[in-house]
Design a protein around this nucleic acid. Sequence first.
DNA 1: GATAAGATGTTA
DNA 2: AACATCTTATCA
Length: 178
Amino acid sequence: MVLLGKKFYSQDTVTVARDLLGTILCRRINNKILRGIICETEAYTQDEPACHAFKGKTNRCNVMFREGGFCYVYFIYGMHYCMNVVTEKEGRGCAVLVRALEPLDGLTGTNGPSRLCKTFGITKELNGVDLRSNLSPLWIEKGEKPLEIVTSTRVGISSAVDYPWRFYIKDSGWVSRK
DNA sequence: GATAAGATGTTA
DNA sequence: AACATCTTATCA
């Protein structure tokens, strides 16, 4: 078992989004560990209007401005949580949205950004958690590099719709539906 | 204080 | 295609 470290998360956001595919999201909850292979991601950077950090630090997105490797969780549509991985260096408001997991340990219900949060018990409580330590309730381990990666535009946004910043493992079977 | 929009998911 | 449901950001 090898954890992803500071060096990994400090990279360019789009690089991190692509390289997170195949890594393993791990959640300690109720004396159990849930695991899933990250198979779909999207990159968001401060420079473009679809990003929560576009207009600078707010109460919601301030975690995005910390150094790479922290967890950014937000609540949306009155009922859903979404989980992000903060990237780059402190002061840059960037993150990668984790959109789907290929479940290990027999889990299911992990195809979709809010579905995986529900299944993994990820709520606002985990906003700001350090993903680089397995003493945290949530962390990420190295995994198998995917054979083939597909690139497309991001889902569910109304600005910067043409950025090719969504990535998923080809033929995964667990990618969120369109 | 009010208002509109939102990185979704389910149902019809 | 509609809707469930409420936080967040923005404006007054």
